[in-house]
Every structure is written in C-alpha cells, then in structure tokens.
Design a protein around this nucleic acid. Sequence first.
RNA 1: GCAGGGGUGGUCGAGUGGUUAAUGGCACCGGGCUGUAAACCCGGCGGGCUAACGCCCUACGUAGGUUCAAAUCCUACCCCCUGCA
Length: 368
Amino acid sequence: ALIETPVFMPVGTAGTVKGTRFDALESPELDARIILGNTYHLWLRPGVDVLRACGGLHRFIGWERALLTDSGGFQVWSLGALRKLKEEGVEFRSHVDGSARFLSPEVSMEVQATLGSDIVMAFDECAPGEAAHEVARTSMELTARWAARSRARFDELQREGADAGSTPEHHASVNGAQALFGIVQGAAHADLRLESLARTVEIGFDGYAIGGLSVGEEKPVMYDTIELLAPRMPPDRPRYLMGVGTPEDLLAAVTRGVDMFDCVLPTRNGRNGQAYTTRGPLNIKNARWTTDTRPLDEDCACSVCHRHSRAYLRHLYLTGEMLASILLTHHNLACFLDTMRRVRQAIRSGNFARFQREFLERYNAGVG
RNA sequence: GCAGGGGUGGUCGAGUGGUUAAUGGCACCGGGCUGUAAACCCGGCGGGCUAACGCCCUACGUAGGUUCAAAUCCUACCCCCUGCA
C-alpha cells in the first residue's frame, strides 16, 4: 500500500469502522488508505479460528487496503478493572462473557499474525497519564521487556510465514509480509520517555509509536511529550501518535513531527451527535438547529453536506434513526481525512505554518 | 338512565392525611466522549427573584368543606372508560 503522511487512520476495532461501509472508506471522497483493527476484540470475537479459516482480517472484512492492528495493550489500560498484570502477560476477564483469558506479547503477535495486518503493534502497557514516576518506570520497563519479546516472537512468525494475509508478492517486499512498530511509554516523565525511546530504538522496529497519551493527562503535557520525542525518533521511520486526537491535536502533533494518527473521535462522536467542522465542533442535538437548512459545514465538500441540512440530521438523531449515526460518521471522517489531505498539500507547498494558523483561526471561531 | 372503575406535572404512570414541587419511564433541554466494554454516559427539567445560602408564588378534573395539616377524607358538579338497559 502507498500511504502518504501525515495520515489519519479511522478506527475499526471489531473489524468495522462503525457506521461506515468499506465502499465509502475507499471512495475518493474519504479515500482512507489504512484503518485499524484490534487484537483483543477480534481475539475474543470472532476468535482466531474463525479469522484463520476466513483467510485473515483483510479477506474476512473485505478490505484490500492497509490494516494496522493494535496489540491489545490499550485494553490493559482501558479494561483496568478486569485484568491482572504479571511479568508474563495479562490475565483478563473477557468483557464479553466473563471468561478468563491470558494475553502476552507472544499471544498478541500470534493473533496479529493470524489477522495478517500490514502493521503489527508491539504489546505494551499503557500507564495512566498522571502515573507517578515509580509507577511509570515500572510500567515503562515492562513495556520495554515486552517489546523485545514481541520482536522475537514476531520474527519467528515471519520466518515461518505464519501470517494469514501473506502472499508471495507480500513476502517479496522489502520488509516482508508484516511490519512491526514499537511503542514508547513513560507517562508524563521526560527522563522515562527518553529512556523508553532509546530502549525501543535499540530493539529496532519498522516504525515507532508514542503511546500513553490522551489518557487523562493535561493537554500541555501531551504536547510537551510529543515535542520531546518526535524530533528524536528515527527520521527514516514513520512516527505514530496513538489515539490522538481532535483536529487541533493533529495539527499540533504534525508541527512537532508526527506522521500517523488514529482516533475514535470522528466515529464515536459522530454516533453520539457531535459533528466536526472547519469551524469547530457542532452538537447536532442542539435546539438551535431545529429549522436550520444549512449543511453541517458550508465549506465541506462531502456528500452529506451536499445533500442534507442540520435540521434534517437533528431530526434523524432525535428520532434515534440509524441514518443519523451513519451520516454524521461519514461527515466526520470526511472532515478528518480532508483536513489531513490539506495538511499534506500545505507541507508539500511549504505553507504549513500559514495553513495551521488560518485553520485554527477559523476552527476556534466556532460554528454560526 | 343504572352499576362499577377512573381523572396527578409535556406525556405515561407511582403515590391514598404530615420533610410532596410530588418516585419512575419517556419526551424535551444542556454537557461530555482522544490506540472503542460507548448508536454511550452525566446533568437539568412548574414559575419568579438571587452572585449564592435561600425566599416567594402556583400546582394532583372543577367548586366547596373537614383538619394544626389534603393529591390523599367528605359533598356537589364536569369529563372519560367498562358492563347492563
């Protein structure tokens, strides 16, 4: 796959970018080049047997473009109450049926091989944003050990040609069938972050991710951490900021040197009635749009904005119609993906600083 | 006409003498959501005044009455439902 950066990757946790058809993701209007899947969720359902029998995640979901799978590391954090952390791995209680499960770097690599994603994420532990130094150090060191184990098991699986999506053509490519990304942790502590980066780079990965941000820390902490890390990350490898973010966050991170992003905001908030526009967020539930015949965003070229009014979308949302989620999700993805398209264009033409200034000026002005 | 049941806040529906401006659900209003346990969660929701603690009105079909105290008891009337004529 050819993926121009900076890139935004829609999140498709359970084998679907919720509320969107793959046709739409591939259409010129959205043109998503790469989407996410989640190891933990797909491992629980439908499970590796089904995924293997169906030829891996690409074939299973009918998506030939690129896939990145998260390792399940984030679920160690987000499902905190349901797990027990050990050196070997994590004992989970399945959120689906309560059964006991065990996830480790090795298991994660094996599941991701079965998924056959193009980019595999190392299995990490994500500490809370406000984690104290000692806690964050312990977590970061565990992540480093898990990274080495991820690398080792991943390499074994690649040698065996174990990944489900692999084809001879894939194997002929420079990096083999799958790529493996390492993840930098360390919470809000600069020394830990730098150490984590050094240890991750020492192991060696095809790309490097900044994890453990937008997990409860203050916004300046997030920006400072990105500013600390991104310029020191290997310049010839993609830099991926995991789980971020709002349009402002994306621009702030691009400025600091980040290449890849993923975030649930456009899809989840779309389902929850929030639209992103070039003039900031718009809550479609608000009574002020009751008879507003304008599109969500008068400067948006997406098919939803071409056809439908705020009044209609509000009606659909209040009525509980599924089309509300579908249309808002579509628009939000269009907004995010188009913004990144414009970012790339601005960078290409050397106008990024001006683009960012003008974008934020408009974005912060708010919707009329 | 007779017999029985019933009329509660936008709505449905609890409450049958005393912290009741009145439980709940829905609707409505507002907010939140950042590697998705999320088409979810939280808050408000009679009116007026106040920066706030709070204060004052008006409310349980209508009108009277009993009582220190009434959505709750009594009387009359109006309306709705069911059955029988």
